[in-house]
């Protein structure tokens, strides 16, 4: 967010030395929110590497007193997490290229100067942001196409994100006209302009949007929950959901019947499940964050 910090540096050039109550409130507010987000995640990670006794000694731990992998060993005993990784990974691997193909081609097409039908096409696209048929007809459509219980159902239904398409379109739109015009005068067709000029100049937005899509595919659970029944094709998010819910239930049963908890530290296993679910997002996030240009969002809200 280097771009956003510029104006404040400029505007307070004169009063840089003075620290007023505004500074204190602003920093305190932002720091509080930061800690409120950071601490729970650190706690989750710490507990996932801790033993049960350590946890009950200090549940608010930010660092495990002794480091153990037993929770993760327990977690990977059944294949559920691996199944989840395979499914969500497949969704991302097949879904993101489709997303990018549909997004870039439509975005480029709608960013070009006026041609017959352009307004209609934009209306068709934008209307879907405000009105939809809902999940039931989509479900019936997928059923009619005999795609229930396949990953294809989820991949196809999430083929294009209107918001992301508009981000890319606005970026193309803002590219200097003179470049495209001179290419046209030199006899370049639309394909050449797209491949040789528009795409190479748009790498930041293409990277941002493909990471948006990547995270979306990784976070998929709702459509998968409705379309996919077999446990072999459960997405990672739904695996996590079932681990959280099932373990809650076994906890209740165990405490009700006063069976001692054997070797297993349920909360630790659950925290491990959270960690392995968010790990890929944590790896991708720094790259995603790098590309938040100020223009990326601002053009998007008014089209």
């Amino acid at each position: 967010m280097a771009a956003a910090s510029k104006p404040s540096r400029l505007s307070y050039r004169l009063s840089r030395a003075r620290v007023s109550y505004v500074d204190v409130i602003a920093v305190a507010f932002a720091a509080l929110l930061t800690l409120a987000i950071l601490v729970p995640f650190i706690n989750v990670i710490a507990v996932s590497f801790a033993s049960q006794t350590a946890y009950y000694n200090n549940r608010f731990m930010l660092f495990p007193p002794e480091f153990t992998l037993s929770n993760y060993k327990e977690l990977f005993k059944d294949n559920r997490i691996l199944t989840g990784y395979r499914t969500s990974g497949t969704l991302a691997l097949l879904g993101v290229p489709l997303n990018m193909f549909l997004t870039v081609s439509l975005a480029y097409g709608t960013s070009r100067p006026a041609y017959p039908g352009k307004k209609l096409i934009m209306f068709i696209v934008l209307f879907t942001m405000f009105f939809s048929g809902g999940i039931i007809p989509l479900y019936l459509l997928i059923k009619g196409m005999r795609l229930t219980d396949t990953l294809a159902s989820v991949i196809l239904c999430t083929g294009l994100g209107t918001f992301n398409m508009i981000l890319v379109r606005n970026y193309f739109y803002a590219l200097p006209d003179s470049l495209m015009e001179s290419a046209k005068l030199d006899g370049a067709g639309e394909w050449r302009i797209l491949l040789r000029i528009a795409l190479p100049l748009s790498l930041p937005i293409l990277a941002t949007v493909s990471l948006f899509y990547l995270v979306d595919r990784w976070n998929e659970w709702y459509l998968a929950m409705i379309f996919i029944r077999s446990t072999k094709k459960t997405t990672l998010q739904l695996v996590l959901r079932s681990i959280m819910l099932v373990n809650q239930m076994t906890n209740a049963i165990q405490s009700a019947t006063a069976i001692d908890q054997l070797q297993r530290f349920d909360i630790g296993v659950r925290m491990g499940a959270i960690v392995v679910t968010i790990l890929p997002v944590m790896c991708v996030f720094p790259f995603l964050q790098k590309h938040f240009a100020k223009g990326v969002m601002v053009g998007a809200i008014k089209t």
Partner: peptide, 30 residues
């Protein structure tokens, strides 16, 4: 004009087909 823009129509076609099939067809389900 339409003939001149034929490449553009080719480019928007896949996206529009997607909208037709997975957004507007379900809307018909209303």
């Amino acid at each position: 004009d339409i003939w001149k823009s034929r490449v553009i129509y080719m480019l928007v076609l896949p996206g529009l087909l997607w909208y037709a099939l997975f957004v507007y067809a379900p809307m018909g389900g209303l």
